[in-house]
Amino acid sequence: MSDMTHSERSGGLKAWLTSDTPASRFQARAINIWFAWRDLLRNPLAVIGIVIIAALILMAVFAPLIATDPPNRQDLAARLLAPGVDGHLLGTDELGRDIWSRIVYGSRVTLQVVALVALTAPIFGLVVGTVAGTLGGWTDRVLMRITDIFLAFPRLILALAFVAALGPGIVNAIFAIALTAWPPYARVARAETLTVRRADYIAAARLQGAGTLRIITGHIMPMCLSSVIIRVTLDMAGIILTAAGLGFLGLGAQPPLAEWGAMISTGRQYLLSHWWVATMPGLAILIVSLGFNLLGDSLRDVLDPRGGQK
């Protein structure tokens, strides 16, 4: 104990976080996170990705403060104003609504989609993949064939079918995206499981008397987690695009809710005469997708030891 108090006194938090002799479970975990974070910050591309995603989150949280107008206030006298005219930063749309404000409020929808899909699909995929990989045999065959059936359809088409069956709306759209997004995670998790399940440390756990459930959750899942997390961040761009695509087709968010895909859809009619109506939300989608991609790429370097040799 004297050891710990000494290091705390001499260097404070920094020394506590870089100590190679952690004194508690909590400190050991904090040190690991700290080192991964520090490695991540060394990569300028990762910093750009983090900044973009942080900006998205701040935008969604403080939307009323950042937006210059209420997102749905129409002003037919001020229709289709060009960017900068009359204090409309990014111009107005066909009903005279301020595009900047709608993009700011639209970030809430985007974040909601991303968060809900990211919390459901990967976890479901992880469970399916690790169970199939660990148990093998018939369980594996049945689970993986179901996965294959889902994978056989193009994602947007499948999502379309689900939404058509469930009825249009943003909640149903999220549900449909989650239903179509899990199979790749199941594949990744299973592949990872197959590489670790014969490892000595799994045999050792079994010899300790650990049951299958404990082995899957405590030993195999942690080994699959980094691949799945990386895959999720890389997929985020695709998920945003799918949500936007559904919105564009009128099956996602319903008017007048500000959603980037739906905004592009209505702006399409004015593309030749008033380019900004469709372009501005398009740029928002592009930037956010880029942010997630950059973060995903750099996470791969930090989390995946096999990727570290370049």
Partner: peptide, 15 residues
């Protein structure tokens, strides 16, 4: 109980 040959492979790398 058993002790394995490879001390690098018999301990879980994240535990």
């Amino acid at each position: 109980q058993m002790v394995f040959q490879d001390p690098y492979g018999s301990l879980h790398p994240r535990h």
